[in-house]
């Protein structure tokens, strides 16, 4: 564990708490893409098939939290606050993302086993899971401030992981190409968002696309 990775994981936790706060406080999931949240649930379930493999208490508890919270968010959006979800705003075709990630995982993986291919699939899928949410944002052209805080924490989490990988490469000679490439793409997808968040939200304005 190092500073960057711990901070990244805490940002990831924070992003989920901010999302839960947004839904509970406004009693609405408007502005949140159900498709993105569904993809995250798929990501966690397919990645943490090794849940019973012991690495540390920290590792196990975080895995349980990510799986449970992602499924709870699906419940909130699909059942508890269903009336506040507008599917006509959430029109990104996730079939293509799922298909492309599965194909990539079948071709580019470390070893061709069931668990390993699903793990690789989850890494690729996480990289692009935010696209339905960003697409929704670009369609509506604006977002509630708390939703942008959620997105910022989520993007910062991945950005910090890049620093963690650089750190681990120099201190432990840790190399993981699949995770590095997917993580770099995932962070890059946030660049436009980060720019507008910095220009507008951090200066006290509403998040609106130019």
């Amino acid at each position: 564990m190092n500073f960057f990775r711990l901070t990244a994981d805490l940002m990831h936790l924070l992003s989920i708490f901010v999302l839960l706060l947004k839904i509970q406080k406004t009693r609405s999931c408007s502005g949140i893409s159900f498709k993105t949240q569904l993809l995250y649930a798929v990501v966690f379930v397919t990645r943490y098939l090794d849940l019973l493999k012991w690495i540390s208490l920290y590792n196990t508890l975080m895995k349980i939290f990510f799986i449970a919270s992602s499924i709870y968010i699906l419940y909130l959006m699909k059942i508890k606050f269903r009336a506040t979800y507008d599917p006509s705003q959430d029109t990104f075709r996730i079939e293509f993302l799922l298909g492309a990630c599965l194909l990539l995982a079948l071709v580019f993986n470390y070893t061709f086993t069931f668990i390993e291919v699903l793990w690789t699939f989850s890494i690729y899928l996480e990289a692009v899971a935010i696209l339905p949410q960003l697409f929704m944002l670009s369609r509506t052209g604006e977002a509630e401030t708390i939703t942008t805080h959620y997105l910022f924490a989520l993007g910062a989490y991945r950005g910090l992981y890049l620093l963690n990988w650089i750190w681990r490469f120099y201190t432990e000679h840790h190399i993981d190409w699949i995770v590095w490439v997917a993580g770099a793409i995932q962070t890059a997808l946030y660049s436009d968002f980060f720019y507008i968040y910095y220009k507008k939200v951090l200066h006290g304005q509403k998040f609106e696309l130019p």
């Binding site: 990831h12 690495i55 590792n59 990510f66 070893t111 963690n164 840790h174 190399i175 995770v179």
Partner: peptide
């Protein structure tokens, strides 16, 4: 012998 990267990250 090739070893898989250790999966200790989340």
């Amino acid at each position: 012998e090739y070893k898989l990267p250790i999966k200790d990250e989340l």
